[in-house]
């Protein structure tokens, strides 16, 4: 029996570690994009995922994953395989987004070179949708100052290059 290995939709490039920041490509078993829900749909989501619909900028931690607000009346389930709840427009986007976990003490300085939002806003339980360089991105706060970054799969290579450049620049400033 062939053992299938989960691969990030952007491939599995090696982690980038420069100075005090590190980027690891991560995988999620399921990315389910939810929209157009009514009260019954929100209840179905609460039953299936174990959390209520997040308000703007919120990320709800559930037993099997996270439910993040990702736009006006839209949410993204990141986690274990989940059946699409009834009463919600649910779309499997597991192959559509590249996920990168940024960690290390230099994460705020690296992000400050890439996004027009204060990186201090991206704390655990919060999600920010903004422009990362020229890419539409989702930034999710994680424990210990880490941030999960998601961009379209087609832009994974650009994200890697932009992260590497920003991390190199921050590291270079540290050496002055």
């Amino acid at each position: 029996m062939v053992e299938l290995v989960a691969e990030s939709p952007g491939g599995n490039p090696p982690p980038i570690e420069i100075g005090g920041a590190r980027a690891d490509w991560i995988t999620a078993e399921t990315l389910l994009w939810l929209s157009n829900w009514d009260d019954a749909g929100a209840s179905a989501v609460a039953e299936a995922m174990g959390v209520g619909m997040p308000g703007p900028g919120e990320v709800a931690e559930a037993p099997g994953g996270r439910l993040a607000w990702v736009g006006l009346d839209q949410a993204l389930w990141i986690g274990a395989a989940a059946a699409a709840p009834v009463g919600v427009a649910a779309m499997d986007q597991g192959d559509a987004w590249s996920l990168v976990r940024l960690s290390g003490p230099d994460v705020p300085d690296v992000l400050a070179r890439l996004i027009p939002v204060d990186p201090a806003e991206i704390v655990p339980g919060r999600v920010v949708r903004t422009e990362l360089k020229h890419m539409q991105s989702i930034l999710i706060g994680c424990p210990d100052g880490a941030v999960d970054v998601a961009v379209f799969r087609s832009m994974a290579g650009t994200l890697a290059r932009d992260l590497e450049e920003a991390m190199s620049s921050v590291a270079a400033r540290r050496m002055i």
Partner: peptide, 14 residues
Amino acid sequence: ETEELWHHSMGCGA
């Protein structure tokens, strides 16, 4: 004063 439509295309999509 003028009223305009803007789209938050890189953010929430509103």
